[in-house]
Amino acid sequence: MKKVLTLLALFFCLNMVSGQDKIEITADDYENTTVEMADTMRSNGKIYVVVAVVMVVFVGLIVYMIQTERKITRIEKEVFKEKDNS
């Protein structure tokens, strides 16, 4: 325990090194229309096409994961049952 505490203390010593200033993001940044964003995609609804595509890819990956999981579960059952019988 003592050793762990010593190491933690060391870690905090390292942390003493000064950090730098950050710039806050303010509410103005959300209204600042001088900065170009993909506003047209939003106004004509095309952003939803992108969202749909990303979602399809993501769901596809998850379905693949689930199937792999199922397969492993089945194999686990087979292998460990065999072990018990022998």
Partner: peptide
């Protein structure tokens, strides 16, 4: 502060 960091890294590695 760089020298201190060096000392601290040394201490960490040795520990």
């Amino acid at each position: 502060d760089q020298l201190l960091t060096l000392v601290a890294i040394n201490a960490l590695i040795m520990g």
